[in-house]
């Protein structure tokens, strides 16, 4: 090969080499296996998360719930102190929830509520919600997970909706099948959101997460 042809060939090869090296180091695109992509973009499943939360995390947290009778007594005597001692606040202050457990006697079973007396006096201290359960009550009151653990806040809300469905669809029907007025009930539950300037939240409205008739 003559020197006249060799020189441009070397230049061409050098230029091509530079481009090739640049493309290897800084690839403008990357080819990936379709199954890998599907795995990466797997959508969040709130029902799956809620089922796992219910079975593995919630049950383990029951012991950390406050004694319901104590909480009610504290609310009746000084609601601000009760909030500070027993209340759980999510985010920037204001409304709060109580995570409570205890035992009581069933006073009445209504369409959407079960009235409960925690003492022998028979006064309704607590109202268990058994239908039309909404909101982030369980996640907010238990504080086992926080919104920061979810990429989208809508995922956190979706998990709440799925948990509410477990309460209404599984827990409550099983309870209602056996429950009668006068029965003694052991419960764990999460109060509805309480705002500081709302009327005193007694009886306390509670979303149940455990219901066990003695």
């Amino acid at each position: 090969m003559s020197a006249r042809l060799l020189k441009p060939l070397i230049l061409w090869l050098s230029a091509g080499g530079i481009v090739a090296v640049a493309l290897v180091i800084f690839p403008p695109f990357r080819i990936v296996c379709l199954s890998e992509t599907r795995q990466a973009v797997k959508t969040f499943d709130p029902s799956e998360y809620a089922a796992d939360f219910w079975q593995n995390k919630l049950t383990a947290s029951f012991a950390s719930a406050s004694d319901a009778a104590e909480v009610l007594q504290a609310i009746r005597s000084d609601r601000r102190a009760a909030k500070e001692r027993y209340g759980r606040v999510v985010g920037a202050g204001g409304p709060h929830h109580y995570y409570v457990r205890g035992s009581g006697r069933i006073i009445a079973i209504r369409d959407r509520y079960v009235d409960l007396a925690l003492t022998d006096e028979g006064e309704i201290d607590l109202v268990l919600m058994i239908a039309k359960i909404v909101g982030n009550e369980v996640l907010n009151a238990t504080a086992i997970v926080t919104p920061s653990q979810f990429a989208r806040t809508s995922d956190y809300n979706g998990v709440s909706a799925a948990i509410n469905q477990i309460v209404e669809g599984d827990l409550v029907p099983a309870f209602l099948a056996k429950a009668n007025v006068g029965d003694k009930l052991h419960f764990v539950g999460c109060s509805k959101r309480v705002q500081d300037d709302d009327p005193v939240p007694v009886p306390l409205q509670v979303v149940p997460v455990k219901l066990e008739i003695e």
């Binding site: 985010g91 409304p95 926080t146 979810f150 806040t153």
Partner: peptide, 10 residues
Amino acid sequence: FEQKIPVPVE
């Protein structure tokens, strides 16, 4: 910092 801080809506 906490990543997400919900501010209650009333």
